[in-house]
Nucleic acid binder design. Sequence first.
DNA 1: TGCGATTTAATCGCACACGATTTATTATAT
DNA 2: ATATAATAAATCGTGTGCGATTAAATCGCA
Lengths: 152, 152
Amino acid sequence: MSTALSDTKQAAAVDDFLCFAIYSAGHAFNRVYKPLLEALGLTYPQYLVMVALWAKDDQTVGKLGATLFLESSTLTPLLKRLEALGLIARQRDPADERQVRVRLTETGSALRDKARDVPQCLLAASGMSLDALRGLQAQISTLRDNLLKSTG
Amino acid sequence: MSTALSDTKQAAAVDDFLCFAIYSAGHAFNRVYKPLLEALGLTYPQYLVMVALWAKDDQTVGKLGATLFLESSTLTPLLKRLEALGLIARQRDPADERQVRVRLTETGSALRDKARDVPQCLLAASGMSLDALRGLQAQISTLRDNLLKSTG
DNA sequence: TGCGATTTAATCGCACACGATTTATTATAT
DNA sequence: ATATAATAAATCGTGTGCGATTAAATCGCA
């Protein structure tokens, strides 16, 4: 048995790469999420920001970025769109004007109810058991942390 | 124990989502790949196209898209960049002018040698055993296929 | 044969995503 | 007290990604 990682003599197909499995699975998740999130008026990264804020309101841009592994160059325009939708408010922290605090609006908090069933839909679409998904989640999170450690 | 998928009463953090693990792991892979592929003058999606062509030369745009799960709206500009780099040639199929055939140039074929060590570097960066990676690759590919089945 | 349906890429608009840089603010060191 | 360093977010340029649409070519069937 040969794989892309162990044997470069064989013609390595993209399917052999774990990175490709993850890359394509990410797209597949997006495809499943899209119609569900369209009902909420959100994209998938926007949904992640809302999930983070529903879990803990009033975070700085930097804190959100650390949670989601995103740069301010990605978050700033995304947050502006959420603000334009009326879901969040962005405000410089008076105690430290370098930081911008992100807070849910009433509308943004209320949206949580409408998003209630999204995780169940995804569970169903995955076609896997909750235990299997938990195991995968833990392994992939570990892999991600290893990869990030290797780059500094 | 409660997770985002099983219990929406608890404050669900993004870290609980398998989709987020995959989303963030994809970014982490990209970050590890970037310096390696920069030496080849490639981005990660461009690298995937090259891997697909190294495995099997002379494919249509549609075939590449089916392999990589990408639309022509994504592939066409990407392929034009690879063509501008002198790595591939794009040509309408005389037998069916609707299709465009993508072929490696000499330079494109030769690049394979320079990319020889990339998979080993990724294996090292993953900090996981080959067996663990194989297992993950299989499970995530299955998950992806399940997700795609659910959307039609 | 010919005309509507299908197939294949390409185009367009929008939204990420990041690295590099910039701007504004705060921390620090002398 | 002031110059310097460090920090936080925003800006800019490039490259994905996709859905919707378009254009061109081929297919299919009467």
